[in-house]
Simulated assay, not measured.
Amino acid sequence: MGWRLGRLLGQGAFGRVYLAQSTELLGRRRAADVPYVAVKIALGPNSSTLHHEKTVYEEIGESRFILKFEGSDRIENQYCIVVEYAPRGTLNNLHRQRISEGRASCYAEMILKGLSRVHEHGWVHCDLKPDNILAFPSRNQAIDVRLKLSDFGRAKRRGVHSSALRGTLLYSSPESVQYGQHERPSDIWSLGCILYWLLTGSGLWDRYVHGNTQLLKTMIEGFDENMLVLPPYLSHKAKSFLKKCLRYDPARRWGVDALLQHPFVPSNW
């Protein structure tokens, strides 16, 4: 199947993502009736990363909380994967200041349900961050967007050793920075960083690092949860949830199932 590429949606270390429509469908329908997809094209020799991502999507399978994988293809001899288009953009685009606890708790539930799917199929995301959480319109009156996890290019199988840092430093756990250890608790740490940002309007490390990578690594490696300062305006439930995610020892961090039962996470909405 061929693709008519539209505007550039984003670019990362491994490829570019374009808005696209099927040329086959465009030949049979009006352009307005042909759905948009997102096509991620490998840059240079990076097709192995997209092949890996394809494998992860296929093994995880379909879920309401995982970006839908539409297939793979080649465009001008470059390998690409095709996924559904997220019209509301990324979580990072969606919010530039802190949000209400009610909204944040709904987001937490959707992200946790996506992580549950990833983890139960034997994978670790390894690069959970606002740019890799995509937003869609919601039909639920309680919340106006649905969130889905995306970008599995850095994902790894549970239990497979990886000595290198795989994710984005600002959302990386102490054990991943210090030892290259990436397992399910590392994803939970990343979730804690995301929720901290949503609930406070600033990143966990914003006031310390100022672009200094080495200082950031030192801060993460030496993180002391007893010195975690949470704003007084946060509720006890919100503070408790963050503390369960941001524990230094990965063995003491709560897992997905336990966090889904936490009082901060809504039971029905």
Rank of each mutant, 00 (worst) to 15 (best):
M1W: 11
L5H: 06
R7M: 10
L8F: 12
L9Q: 02
A13P: 07
Y18V: 09
A20K: 02
A20L: 07
L26V: 07
R28P: 03
V39K: 01
A42F: 04
A42H: 03
L50R: 11
Y57L: 12
E62D: 15
R64E: 15
F69A: 12
D73W: 10
I75R: 06
V82A: 06
V83W: 06
E84M: 10
Y85E: 06
A86L: 13
G89R: 02
G89E: 03
L91N: 04
L91R: 01
L94N: 03
H95S: 12
R96Y: 08
R98L: 14
E101I: 09
G102P: 01
A104G: 09
Y107V: 04
H119K: 03
W123V: 13
V124Y: 08
H125V: 07
C126H: 02
K129C: 05
K129L: 03
N132M: 08
A135K: 06
F136C: 11
N140S: 15
F152K: 01
K156I: 14
G159T: 07
V160S: 12
S162F: 13
S162C: 14
L165F: 09
T168H: 05
Y171N: 11
Y171I: 08
S176I: 05
S176V: 09
G180C: 05
P185A: 03
I188H: 00
S190C: 10
L191C: 01
T200C: 14
L204I: 13
V209C: 12
N212F: 08
E221A: 14
Y233R: 08
H236K: 07
K237R: 08
K243D: 04
C245P: 00
R247I: 07
D249W: 07
P250A: 02
G255Q: 00
Q261Y: 04
P263V: 01
P263C: 03
V265M: 03
N268E: 12
